[in-house]
Write a protein that binds this DNA or RNA. Structure first.
Lengths: 135, 135
DNA sequence: TCAGCACCTTCCTACAATGGGAAGGTCAAG
DNA sequence: CTTGACCTTCCCATTGTAGGAAGGTGCTGA
């Protein structure tokens, strides 16, 4: 099948499929006589794997490792577990960060009347006249 | 004061101060005879404002608007409130997304024994053999 | 048979925010 | 007069994705 069909079937855009090939995430597979890339269901399967991993927030570099492990039948499930656990920890850290931001914003929003008057605790907070959560 | 001092005082790196000037976020202020940028406490105050807003996750584009509102004494606190509320909603949406990812990851991690054996529900999940949370 | 359209190819550009580094100018202390 | 710590500009890299230009391919309908 052509790249467009593989894109549709996998949920990865044709643009991205070419990109993944360019950075060596997927192999430079077969070409037809006209130079068009040719894909089969295994390729689509792999693309879907990548797509799922992206949806879970794995970076392309992490996915590179995951793909290696996926292809390697002698792998250790410990390696996968470790990678995923580290990634989960990253996400949890990010959530905590965002929650801190959200809490501060909610506080500021609560204090700001939000009408036609110019005085605004949000701006005051940003300008450092109020307690602010650090980075 | 020189850029390095302003950087230290504001928590914004010299590199970023130059960048903010280049993109017009802050004005191209005075230069000394030798071509060095010169800053005063008002500049530092503005940089700290930017820094705080960045810490709260505002984009430089949003900060551009916030700075305009901050400088404009005839502003409407409603505008600030609206901008901040929208930003808070963005953050909350992002938190929900990350929490969904984390939940799926935790499920997969829970199912994966993570030892020397090769079979791994995490890889199976990514390859689509298990229920996965969509994007 | 040719026109048109949908597809494909490569290559370059952009985004957002930040950092790294090179090549060179400036200034104060020793 | 050298050394070192600043400063200047300019270019490049990052991460993941998209847009677009310029050109080739191939099917379909008139």
């Amino acid at each position: 099948m052509q790249i467009g069909t593989a894109a549709e079937a996998s949920g990865v855009s044709a643009k991205m499929i070419r990109h993944y090939e360019a950075i060596g995430l997927i192999s430079s597979g077969a070409r037809r006589i006209n130079g068009y890339r040719d894909y089969d269901s295994r390729d689509v399967h792999e693309l879907r794997f990548i797509r799922s991993a992206r949806d879970l927030g794995f970076s392309l570099d992490e996915i590179r490792t995951l793909l290696d492990l996926w292809r390697n039948k002698d792998r250790n499930s410990r390696d996968v577990h470790q990678l995923a656990a580290r990634h989960l920890a990253d996400i949890e850290r990010k959530i905590v960060e965002l929650q801190a931001m959200a809490a501060t914003l909610r506080e500021l929003l609560h204090a700001c009347h939000g009408d036609a008057r110019p005085d605004c605790p949000i701006l005051a907070g940003l300008s450092g006249k109020t307690s602010m959560a650090g980075h």
